[in-house]
């Protein structure tokens, strides 16, 4: 991995879709998924098929996607607890007493969560951080927020290097001290890190003013997306909206 954010650097049709189109597509897709009634199982399998197709077209390795799915773990734990803690009519599976609404609730969380996370992985793995910023800018996100995100992208590695150096310095001087001691040291370290980062911020501001900064960041993006690119990028999301509407009608 090149370490350029979460980007998987290959060339694919999905990589070439402009970032603002992908951002809108993700947003619409997730809205469609969450508004689908949980009991309409065929809708979710259609979503899954479309997402898997997109992952294949984007040439993302299955191992990368499954590894990044790990962020979902806390929700999975919560979902697996639901059938045991929810009340209402019970079903018996392998000798276990499970709540019916709990099982459906767990499925609801699991299916929608997994689909949403895979869609987000698709976006983050096919878009460079800088393009993502340019896309947010095209979508009229306030310039100050874009600037804050851009500084975060730029200085995350600098700050984490600082943190790493402080840990090495601590341990080189024989610091052990177990889990609690480590937490204490990290808490102190965070204070030092804040001061360091604050001072760096002041120096960066000086450097910006030296190059004529007057309070407005120059724009990152130059060109918009064409109608064809919008249609291509939104294809799955629009299909998802159609499915969601159909599922609503069926469940009435």
């Amino acid at each position: 991995m090149s370490g350029d954010g979460l980007l998987v650097a290959v060339d694919s049709p999905v990589h070439r879709v402009p970032a603002q189109v992908k951002l809108v597509a993700l947003f619409v897709f997730v809205l469609a998924v969450v508004s689908t009634p949980a009991a309409i199982f065929w809708a979710f399998s259609l979503y899954a098929v479309m997402l898997v197709a997109a992952v294949v077209v984007a040439k993302l390795p299955a191992t990368v996607v499954s590894r990044r799915l790990a962020v979902e773990t806390p929700f999975i734990v919560f979902a697996l607890l639901l059938p045991f803690v929810a009340t209402g009519p019970q079903v018996h599976v392998l000798g276990l007493h499970l709540s019916q609404s709990g099982v459906l609730g767990a499925w609801n969380v699991l299916a929608k969560g997994t689909l949403g996370v895979i869609a987000a992985i698709l976006l983050s793995a096919t878009t460079a951080p800088r393009d993502l910023l340019a896309g947010l800018e095209r979508l009229r996100l306030p310039a100050t927020l874009v600037a804050i995100l851009s500084f975060m992208v730029r200085y995350l590695s600098v700050v984490s290097d600082d943190l790493h150096r402080m840990r090495v310095a601590r341990e080189s001087r024989g610091y052990t001290g177990g889990r609690v001691g480590h937490l204490k040291a990290v808490a102190g370290g965070v204070g030092v890190l804040f001061v360091r980062s604050f001072e760096r911020g002041e120096r960066v501001h000086l450097a910006m003013r030296s190059r004529g900064y007057t309070g407005r960041m120059p724009l990152l993006s130059v060109s918009g997306a064409t109608r064809a690119q919008w249609l291509e990028g939104l294809a799955i999301s629009l299909a998802a909206v159609t499915i969601a509407v159909a599922a609503r009608v069926v469940s009435l």
Binding site: P129, R130, S150, R154, R200, R203, V204, A207, S210, L220
Partner: peptide
């Protein structure tokens, strides 16, 4: 044109 000592201060764009 001022070039600062630490390039990480000077290079702040993505």
């Amino acid at each position: 044109g001022l070039v600062f000592q630490d390039p990480d201060d000077q290079l702040f764009m993505p």
